[in-house]
Structures are given as C-alpha cells and as structure tokens.
Design a protein around this nucleic acid. Structure first.
Length: 199
DNA sequence: GTATGGATCGGCT
DNA sequence: GCCGATCCATACA
C-alpha cells in the first residue's frame, strides 16, 4: 500500500459525509523522534453542519475553532478526562464540521504503538478513537495542523478500493443519534463498536 | 465563581 | 454488559 505521499487537499471531498466515506482505507502517518507509526483508517464518523452532536453546533469557541479551517486540518480535543480524539476538518473555510477518525489498522511502527499504549494485543492498539490517539501519541499540540503535507502528523494515500464499506448510526452520542453517519470497513477486525453495528 | 456532562477506556462480573 | 475514573470546556449565575 503506497502511503508515502500525503493526500492532496484537492483529492478530499468538500462535503463532510463524502469525506468520511472517502477517508476509509486511507492512512494516518505519525512522525515521532523514534520513528514513524502509521495505520489504515477503517472507521470514521461525520459531524455535519447543523448536527446537534457536533462540537460546532453552538458556534465557534476557542476549543473548536480548528473545525472551521479549510478541509484537511486536524481538530483534536480531550474528552472524558482521559482520551484525545482526532478529527479532520471538512467543508469550506469558515464552516464548522469534521470527520472523527474512530479506528486504525496498524501498519508501521507497531512496536512504537505498543509502547505508547502499554498493550501487546495488535487488535487493541488503535481500535477506538481514544486508543488510536494514544497509540500515535496525539495531543492538543497537534490541533490545527495541516494534514495534507508531510510533518508530525499527516494523511497518506492508502487503498483506492479498500473493500466493502458499511454504514451505521454513530457511537457514544445522544443528540441526533439516529443518523447514519458512521462508516466502517466490513469484516475488518480493527473496527470498534458492538457487533450489531458492524454487519 | 460553580455545575454539568461528555464523539471513552479498562477492569470486573 | 456494567460501572467508575477523570478533567476540561462550556453555560449560566
């Protein structure tokens, strides 16, 4: 899988839902002092314009301002007192929307991820948004970063034909909970969530 | 200033 | 499957 090239911004759909689907099979690449760690995106969720579950629903604040950047920038926040979440901004500049990256299939730097997570099991290294952020040592310092150019964190080309993509409701939200805005790779063991959502 | 409730995880049953 | 930990951004007084 040729990941050693950043995704060009022009390749990214402007529309949030299209972007969430498009990112399945692409790669997240993290450059660390001790080496490169990367993974293939197997699960995403769209947080669209006017979405009551979206962090931009009530307008721009200091926390969520990265959601308003041109598509392809990182929005990173801290949730539940324990986990960082990685999002990719979508839509045109000034519009607050994005795509949550929910799970990765580890590709490169698996020993680095094991150290960052303190867990051996390959399947558990980046299955879940908090876990993948920990595996790649992602925190608020990377918030606002352009993911379409090489640097500490970027989006790489992955598969054009990743496999069959499923669609379901999103996980762990209460507002606007019934919309089918979650995308995942069918039959991939690195996808998070209950079996009932992954058929 | 205080209250509140998460886009979760890991451990236990 | 259930529950507690943990902390910060936000909302409101």
């Amino acid at each position: 899988m040729a990941i050693r090239r950043p995704l060009a911004r022009s390749e990214l759909p402007v529309d949030t839902v299209s972007l969430a689907r498009h990112l399945i099979g692409k790669a997240v690449v993290r450059e660390l002092p001790e080496g490169v760690a990367s993974g293939r995106i197997v699960e995403t969720e769209a947080y669209v314009v006017g979405d009551a579950a979206g962090h931009a629903y009530r307008g721009m604040t200091r926390r969520n301002q990265s959601l308003y950047l041109e598509r392809g920038h990182a929005y990173i926040y801290f949730a539940y007192g324990s986990s960082y979440m990685l999002n990719v901004s979508s839509e045109t500049p000034g519009i607050g929307a994005g795509v949550l990256i929910r799970a990765l299939e580890p590709l490169e730097g698996i020993p680095i991820m094991r150290l960052n997570r303190g867990v051996e099991r390959l399947r558990d290294l980046a299955r879940g948004p908090g876990r993948l952020a920990a595996a790649l040592r992602i925190d608020r310092r990377l918030d606002g970063l352009d993911l379409c150019r090489e640097g500490p964190l970027w989006l790489g080309c992955g598969d054009d034909e990743p496999g069959e993509i499923g669609r379901s409701i999103r996980i762990g939200i209460s507002q606007d909970a019934n919309r089918l805005l979650r995308f995942y790779l069918r039959d991939n063991p690195f996808v998070s969530g209950p079996r009932s959502l992954n058929e």
